[in-house]
Design a protein around this nucleic acid. Structure first.
Lengths: 354, 354
DNA sequence: AGCACTTGTTAAAACGTTTTAACTCTTCGA
DNA sequence: TCGAAGAGTTAAAACGTTTTAACAAGTGCT
């Protein structure tokens, strides 16, 4: 019996493999094989099938396909926000590599909300994403450890894989790939650079105890001071988040209260540096003539500000995350922990103190 | 007969609705209904089922579900690159709205390559995305018209919908939603602002005949000159793409060849403005003291440069695209064409000519 | 001619859901 | 006491692929 194509309400008519088979006068198995191209096939049949496919504008139904065997391969990335340069760059790396490896890229944003993160992870798990990449700054407390372990196991149970990008690793028994970056080393280099120029009173902006990325940078800052025999001064370590407005606020508040007790500023990211610079300028302090400034990230604002900063391999992190997530998939063994390098980019925002 | 859960190679064990049903001592139909919650259900049964679901950490298989009825709902966005601020903002809007409407967001990048765009559209079509949103600058020639029409029909045939975001509309018979922005009006306002300040020799940067976004801005520029009775001078209209380096190049080449024949610059986007500004500074021309500068987009660099610019509703465009794509889905009628407004943001990069 | 391959094709059984139609109890009104 | 209506549940039929196992038909070797 000939099965007729069903017309749906809106007049849409998706063609099925059956119709193609009928039109070509072969079985569905043959069509499937010819399209997959992994079986011996007679040129004549092949032609007939291809012609039918063209004619019907046939596209295989992914859902049916996934169900039957060939699982759809996609990689998911979950970030705070697409418009933050750092996340955008990592996402670009993930997207590029995913495409290169023949995978589709799903993207979800959380706005920094742990509940939405959880929901997203669930969603991606339902979608059977091959890997779920979580990126970003986070409070690394016990609650975090527990939540991530749960994600990792839950995903592993569904045949997927958790990747932490720029987040602290979990235990060795937890099945999660970790891709990090030597933040501490970068901060050490940045601070050392200022010290070499003769600075000793270096303000650091963006301290946020408990948050991994901030902590790592702070550690590098302290290490550099120690290495050069300079005592650290807690008064010079200002707390704030990683946003432009915060950089502005931190400097502004300090200058307005008359604390002009530093000759250089190390901002924990370029956005903070941009805000800080604006506040400095408003107080008639030039960069680098009056105050030296070093940032972190080397993202768009840096170039316009002529900012000496620490370059991070943002895109490379994304690419690496995908690469290892998929590679590791096939092998067994302990999940890898990769650490990428950073390097200082010297522009024109540092000079010697007067 | 009791079917046992299959163990896959890596020890993974996804639980099926069958197992849940067995554990709860009911049929799969009941489990499905209780989870969907759209049917009468006895509290006792409900409890048993929910307990079983919890115990097995059961998550329904999307593919099976889509195949059987409830189609998975996702929205796809295809852009040049995630790291370009404009695209990132639109993508953020799409992501936000998609999530708000309970949809997943797929993302693909093309790098500006038409072939990859085609491949992406195919891919999204296979994925049964409810809507495919194409955003960005494009050469609006006949080939474009043909390609887009093909996309639109192909997607419509698959029950999906094409959305053009910041791209020129196709014919009225082509099933594509168009979300645009009043680029011409914005450019008119920007140019008028310069003219009001007393400028008559206004350089415009980023001309690119045939490319829609550039053309629209150019039209606004010309209109403003005409409206104020100033004759346009083709010598003042410089060709270039929408990148920072190009802005730098355009000004640099001009100044190095001694053509210091303008008092103001209208850059077709903020990146161009950033590059232009750098070149101006290198030639010891201050902004706005020596040369006035207006940009377009109001994206991150603008704030740091204190740039007067035209604000575009980037995120709103993304949100609107999703909203109309999904809304229109249910109704019939001609596909909508929405045009959003722009407005001038005045900062400190314009002054009167000396 | 008989046998063992290879080549090309197919019918039918998965895959894991949702949904249709049918079935069994209760309950209630007449 | 009967019949109808409703509540709760289920067996079985989709959904559109891939894949397994089986089967023809052709080829070369003895």
């Amino acid at each position: 019996m000939v099965r007729r194509a069903k017309k749906s309400a809106d007049g849409t008519r998706k063609s099925t493999i059956r119709e193609v088979a009928e039109l070509a006068g072969v079985s569905t198995a043959t069509v499937s094989r010819i399209l997959a191209g992994n079986y011996p096939e007679a040129p004549v049949t092949r032609d007939r099938v291809m012609r039918a496919v063209k004619e019907l504008d046939y596209v295989a139904n992914v859902h049916a396909r996934s169900l039957a065997g060939t699982p759809t391969t996609s990689v998911a990335i979950i970030i705070n926000s697409v418009i933050s340069p750092h996340y955008a760059h990592v996402a670009q790396g993930v997207q590029t590599q995913a495409t290169a490896e023949g995978r589709l890229c799903l993207i979800g944003t959380t706005g920094g909300d742990a509940a939405r993160e959880l929901a997203m992870v669930q969603l991606m798990r339902e979608q059977h994403a091959e890997a779920v990449i979580l990126v970003g700054n986070v409070l690394a407390d016990a609650e975090y450890q527990a939540r991530m372990s749960q994600y990792a196991h839950s995903l592993a149970a569904a045949g997927s894989r958790l990747v932490l990008c720029g987040r602290p690793p979990l235990g060795p028994d937890v099945p999660a790939v970790v891709v990090g970056c030597d933040y501490t080393g970068g901060a050490f280099a940045a601070t050392s650079h200022l010290i070499s120029a003769g600075h000793e009173r270096i303000l650091c902006l963006g301290r946020r105890p408990g948050y991994t990325t901030a902590d790592a940078r702070h550690a590098g800052y302290r290490d550099a001071l120690t290495a050069h025999g300079i005592a650290h001064d807690a008064q010079l370590e200002v707390e704030g988040t990683f946003e432009r407005e915060e950089g502005y606020r931190m400097i502004k508040e300090r200058l307005e209260s008359g604390q002009r007790d530093f000759t250089a500023v190390f901002a924990f990211n370029d956005l903070i540096a941009a805000g800080a610079r604006q506040a400095l300028l408003e107080h008639h302090l030039g960069v680098p003539d009056d105050v030296s400034l070093v940032g972190f990230d080397d993202l768009p604002p840096a170039l316009d500000l002529n900012l000496t900063t620490v370059q991070l391999p943002h895109q490379e992190m994304g690419r690496t995350a995908v690469r290892f997530a998929l590679e590791h998939e096939t092998q067994g063994g302990a999940p890898p922990h990769i650490v990428l390098d950073t390097h200082l980019v010297i522009r024109d925002s540092v000079s010697s103190p007067r």
